[in-house]
Design a protein around this nucleic acid. Structure first.
Length: 608
DNA sequence: GTGGATGAG
DNA sequence: CGCTCATCCAC
C-alpha cells in the first residue's frame, strides 16, 4: 500500500471496519488467466475506461459551421443569456453566467452567435436576424448532429471498444478490449504461459516494462503538489513500481490521443479526456486539464487524488444526496467522508450508502454500456414569456413544436429507420400551477409529417384546454414517448417499414447458425441501401458486421473511392491485429468469443 | 395515464 | 441563471 499506514489506520481506530479493505484493490495480482479472460466485466483488473468530452462544444460547433479561426473569442447566446463560451472568450473573463451585454463589455470584439431557432411557419430551424423569444424556439439540432458524428467516429476508430454517449458533448469509452488486443500484440510473450510458471495459468504475469508517459498526457501525481519538502514524505516515488494496469492505461492513452487527434483533423473539434479504471474516475480525471488535453489517473494515485475533492462535484452527488451528506456530517471533501463507516452511512442513507461508500474509495461498478442509440422519449418544449390566451396562438406553437419533433424523428430515422413513437403527449402549464397533460396513441403512418403530429397535438390541446375559462398557458411541451424499434415490438411493424423498399424477401428475425447471411435476406444490406440514399460513403465489413463510414472524415480525399479503399485497408489492418492476438491465444482456455454485432445490425438480431 | 422529483449541462 | 432535455417512480 502506498499511503502511510499509520495515517490510514488512525482513521479507523475503533470504527470496527477493516482499514485493510480501503484501497485494497489498487494493486491486484494479475495472472495469465485474467489476461486471457475476455468477459470479466467490471471486475477485470485490467479494466480501462475513458471519458472524452468536447471543449466548449456548442461554441465549437458554431465555430466549425462558420469556418472561423479557433482563436476567435466566441459565445453562443440563447436570448440574452449565454449557453457556451469558447476558451479564447474565457480569457476575457466571460463565463456562462454572464448576460450577452456583460460579454460584450468584457470583450467588444466578441463573436456572438445566437443559437438556431424554429420560427412559426418555418419547417426547419435557422439563423434568423430577428430572434425573439416570443416568436421563436431554440433548436439544438446542429449540436446533436455534430455530436453524433463524433460518436460515429469513435465507433469506427475503436471497433471493439464499447462507447456510451453520456450527453451531447461527452462519451465514455471502455478501452479494456482494444487495450488487450494491443497488449497481446506488443508483448507476445504474454500469450504463452511459461512452462515453468508455478501455478500454470494462475501464475502472476512477469514484471511489466517501464513506461514512458511523456507523450501520453498529464499524469495525475502520486502525491499532492503542495507537500512540503521538509516534511517526512509518505513514500518515495519509486516505492510505486509500475503495474500491468499502468501499461494498460498507457496503451489506452495512446489510442485516445490518436482518436482525439483524428477527430480534430477531420471534424475540427478539440476534446479533453480522462483515463482511469472506471467511469467515475475517468469523468473526474477529464476535468483535470482543459481544453484539448488528456489526463491519466493511475491506481496508485487514486487515494491522493480523491482525498481533497469536494464530493458535491462528483456526478450524482451534486444534488440532494450530496447536500444531505454534507449536512449530516458537516464535511465537504471525499477525505472527510472516509471517516464515516459503512454501517453509519447505511443507517442514514439506506441503499445509496454502499454506492457512495465505494465511490469515495475509487470503486465504481457501473458498466460502459451503449445506450442503444434509442431514446425512450423525444421532447420539444417552450416556455412562453407572453402566455397563450387565444386558441389560435396555441395552435401556432404546437405547429412549431411539431415541426421540431418531425425533423428530429426524421433525422433519428436516418440512423435507425424503424424508430417508432408509440404515444404522443402534450403538457401545458399555467403560471405556477402544476402542469396538466394528455396523451394518446400516435397514429401509424409511414411519413411522420408536421401535419400528422400537429393534428394529434391539436386534439390533445382541445382535451386539455376545452373547458378552461381563460387559457393563460405559460409553457407547452410536446413529446413522443415509448419510442421503440420493431424487433422489440410486433411483427406487423416490421413489414410496414420494409414496404418502403422495393420488393425483397422478409427480414430474418434470427441469425443463422453460421456467419453467413443470405444476401437477399440480409437486413444490413437493406439498411445499407437506405443509408446510401442518404449520401454517405461507407462499406460494410463482413467480418465484424460493421458499417465503416467515410462520409465526413475522409472529405480531404480526392475521391470517395480512394478514401474508401484507404479506410478498408485500415480496417483490415485492425482485423489482422485482432487475428494476431487471437491466434496466439492458444494457451487460453477460452473459446474465441463470436463478436457481437454492433451498430444497426444489433437491432435486427433477436435477443437471447 | 398523469404528474412530480431529480439531475445534467 | 433560465432554459432544455431525459429518466424514474408513486399514484
Amino acid at each position: 500500500m502506498q499511503h502511510s499506514p499509520s495515517k490510514a489506520s488512525a482513521f479507523w481506530k475503533g470504527k470496527g471496519k477493516e482499514p485493510a479493505q480501503d484501497y485494497d484493490d489498487l494493486r491486484p495480482t494479475i495472472t495469465y488467466r485474467h489476461l486471457y479472460s475476455h468477459n470479466l466485466g467490471v471486475r477485470d483488473p485490467l479494466r480501462v475506461v475513458a471519458l472524452c468530452d468536447s471543449d466548449a462544444f456548442y461554441a465549437a460547433c458554431e465555430r466549425v459551421r462558420l469556418g472561423l479561426d479557433p482563436s476567435v473569442p466566441l459565445v453562443v447566446q440563447q436570448w440574452e443569456s449565454l449557453i457556451a463560451v469558447s476558451y479564447p472568450a474565457r480569457k476575457f473573463g466571460i463565463s456562462r453566467m454572464d448576460k450577452i451585454k456583460d460579454a460584450k463589455k468584457k470583450c467588444p470584439e466578441i463573436v456572438a452567435i445566437h443559437v438556431a431557432t424554429y420560427k412559426e411557419g418555418e419547417k426547419e430551424p435557422g439563423y434568423w436576424p430577428d430572434v425573439d423569444t416570443r416568436t421563436h424556439k431554440v433548436s439544438l439540432d446542429l449540436y446533436r448532429r455534430e455530436s453524433n458524428k463524433i460518436i460515429q467516429f469513435f465507433k469506427q476508430a475503436l471497433p471493439s471498444g464499447e462507447i456510451e454517449k453520456a450527453s451531447i458533448d461527452e462519451a465514455f469509452i471502455d478501452f479494456t478490449r482494444p487495450v488487450r488486443e494491443v497488449l497481446l500484440k506488443r508483448f507476445p510473450h504474454l500469450a504463452q504461459v511459461p512452462p515453468d510458471a508455478p501455478h500454470g495459468v494462475d501464475s502472476p504475469l512477469p514484471p511489466p516494462p517501464p513506461i514512458d508517459w511523456s507523450e501520453l498526457g498529464e499524469l495525475i501525481p502520486l502525491r499532492p503538489a503542495e507537500e512540503d519538502e521538509d516534511r517526512e514524505p509518505h513514500f518515495a516515488e519509486d516505492d510505486v513500481t509500475c503495474t500491468w494496469h499502468d501499461v494498460a492505461l498507457s496503451i489506452a492513452a495512446e489510442l485516445m490521443a490518436k482518436v482525439r487527434h483524428d477527430v480534430h483533423e477531420n471534424l475540427g473539434y478539440t476534446m479533453s479526456a480522462g483515463i482511469s479504471r472506471n467511469k467515475f474516475l475517468a469523468k473526474l480525471t477529464a476535468s483535470n486539464k482543459k481544453p484539448n488535453s488528456q489526463s491519466i489517473l493511475r491506481n496508485s494515485a487514486i487515494p491522493t487524488y480523491l482525498r481533497p475533492i469536494g464530493f458535491q462535484k462528483i456526478r450524482f452527488l451534486g444534488g440532494k444526496l450530496g447536500d444531505a451528506l454534507a449536512k449530516e456530517y458537516d464535511v465537504s471533501t471525499v477525505g472527510d467522508l472516509l471517516a464515516v463507516s459503512l454501517d453509519e452511512m447505511q443507517n442514514r442513507f439506506g441503499d445509496s450508502a454502499l454506492w457512495v461508500y465505494e465511490l469515495l474509495r475509487g470503486i465504481d461498478r457501473s458498466e460502459v454500456k451503449e445506450k442503444s442509440a434509442l431514446f425512450k422519449s423525444m421532447l420539444a418544449s417552450k416556455n412562453l414569456p407572453t402566455p397563450i390566451t387565444k386558441a389560435a396562438d396555441g395552435h401556432q406553437w404546437l405547429r412549431v413544436l411539431a415541426a421540431e419533433l418531425a425533423l428530429r424523428l426524421k433525422e433519428a430515422r436516418e440512423e435507425m429507420p424503424t424508430l417508432w413513437p408509440k404515444t404522443i403527449a402534450l403538457h401545458a402549464r399555467k403560471g405556477y400551477e402544476a402542469s396538466r397533460s394528455k396523451q394518446s396513441a400516435f397514429p401509424f403512418t409511414h411519413e411522420v409529417t408536421v401535419d400528422v403530429i400537429a393534428t394529434a397535438a391539436d386534439k390533445l390541446w382541445k382535451e386539455l384546454t376545452g373547458n378552461m375559462k381563460n387559457l393563460n398557458v405559460t409553457a407547452v411541451q410536446l413529446a413522443f414517448t415509448g419510442i421503440e424499434t420493431p424487433e422489440s415490438g410486433q411483427q406487423s411493424i416490421e413489414g410496414f417499414f420494409k414496404s418502403k423498399e422495393p420488393p425483397r424477401s422478409p427480414f430474418k428475425r434470427t441469425r443463422p447458425g453460421n456467419d453467413e447471411i443470405p444476401p437477399e435476406a440480409d437486413p444490413l444490406q437493406i439498411m445499407t441501401e437506405l443509408h446510401e440514399s442518404a449520401s454517405s460513403t461507407f462499406f460494410l465489413c463482413e467480418r465484424c458486421n460493421q458499417t465503416i463510414s467515410a462520409s465526413e472524415m475522409e472529405r480531404g480525399e480526392a475521391d470517395h473511392v480512394t478514401a474508401l479503399a484507404k479506410l478498408r485497408m485500415e480496417h483490415d489492418d485492425f482485423h489482422f491485429a485482432q487475428d494476431l492476438a487471437n491466434g496466439s491465444d492458444i494457451q487460453a482456455p477460452k473459446r474465441r468469443k463470436t463478436k457481437e454485432p454492433t451498430g444497426i445490425a444489433r437491432f435486427f438480431i433477436k435477443k437471447k
